[in-house]
């Protein structure tokens, strides 16, 4: 029997060590292995007009992501899964500080998309203690908008985070956020607005979303985790979330939903973020990302 093209593609991907650890949909939109550079991941900068003073302070705190070997003071570089480098997103050293890295695309067809990535997180190892409750959360989001001729004109923003700790409590659970934040005008030309969608309020628990991730036994040893998020651009609904050995229930999940904006048609933005729970830098490391679609 002659194998069809999907079977051939699957066999080729399984034979490729870099792709074999992913389960992509038929079309790979982006495969970002940070041994090849930044791959289009950059700093999320807030909106402004006339002056940078107009930028919301929640965005003003952001800085540029790094290519990191995960260098540790007590043994040296940790490295990635299959190379030296990972993308590093680091907060400032103030409790509640956040940083975000973003990749900005548009979509060709409204259908299923799948985000897969390998990640880990650690606080700055400036204390000889386990520090397992120093990182507040790590998370990711899509910023999506329907096409300019679609009947439904919406900007949709699914937000997910793994709440590792809050106010010193080791919480370890997955959450989502559907509550929108108020929009505020930026500048005087009536062309730009801002909304602080990553504000700390309004996160809700995913049902049964508690998960104890491998943290290891000192603050400098890391283990990589797998995460997968499925979303259907046709219905603008989330269809699946998995982390390591766990399939999570998205029955109660919903996204932020905002009337479409005039400059964002077919937008497909992905972002990763990290928050610190203490006055210490927290870092999210991404070894590799695979974004795929069924088209």
């Amino acid at each position: 029997m002659t194998p069809d093209r999907h079977e051939i593609a699957l066999a080729l991907r399984l034979a490729d060590p870099a792709l074999s650890r992913f389960d992509p949909l038929p079309r790979i939109i982006a495969f970002d292995d940070f041994d090849r550079g930044f791959c289009g991941w950059t700093q999320l900068v807030g909106n402004y007009e006339d002056t940078l003073d107009a930028m919301h302070p929640g965005y003003a705190q952001h800085t540029q992501a790094m290519l990191s070997t995960l260098p540790m003071w007590d043994f040296g570089s940790h490295g990635g899964i299959d190379g030296s480098y990972a993308l590093k997103i680091a907060t400032r050293p103030q409790a509640g500080a956040r940083n975000v890295a973003i990749k900005r695309l548009t979509f060709r067809r409204r259908g299923p998309i799948r985000l897969e990535f390998y990640f880990t997180f650690k606080p700055e190892a400036n204390e000889l203690s386990l520090s397992e409750t120093d990182v507040r959360s790590v998370g990711f989001l899509y910023d999506l908008q329907t096409g300019d001729r679609d009947g439904d004109a919406w900007r949709i923003m699914p937000h997910l985070r793994f709440l590792n700790a809050l106010n010193g409590e080791h919480v370890q659970k997955w959450q989502f956020k559907r509550r929108t934040e108020p929009f505020a005008p930026v500048g005087s030309a009536n062309k730009t607005v801002t909304h602080y969608h990553l504000a700390p309020e309004g996160w809700e628990d995913i049902a049964g979303g508690g998960q104890k991730l491998c943290y290891n036994e000192i603050p400098t040893k890391v283990n990589w985790h797998y995460c997968r998020f499925d979303f259907d651009l046709a219905t603008m609904q989330a269809t699946g979330l998995a982390c390591n050995d766990r399939e999570l229930d998205l029955g109660g999940f919903d996204s932020m939903r905002i009337p479409a904006m005039r400059n964002l048609w077919c937008m497909l933005n992905l972002a990763f973020f990290v928050e610190t729970d203490v006055d210490k830098r927290a870092s999210l490391f991404i070894d590799s990302v695979c974004l795929s679609g069924d088209f």
Binding site: G37, F38, Q43, V45, L52, D53, M55, A60, T63, Q64, M66, L67
Partner: peptide, 10 residues
């Protein structure tokens, strides 16, 4: 590889 990184803004 080349990169411009803004590390302090305003």
């Amino acid at each position: 590889e080349s990169q411009a990184a803004v590390v302090a803004r305003n």
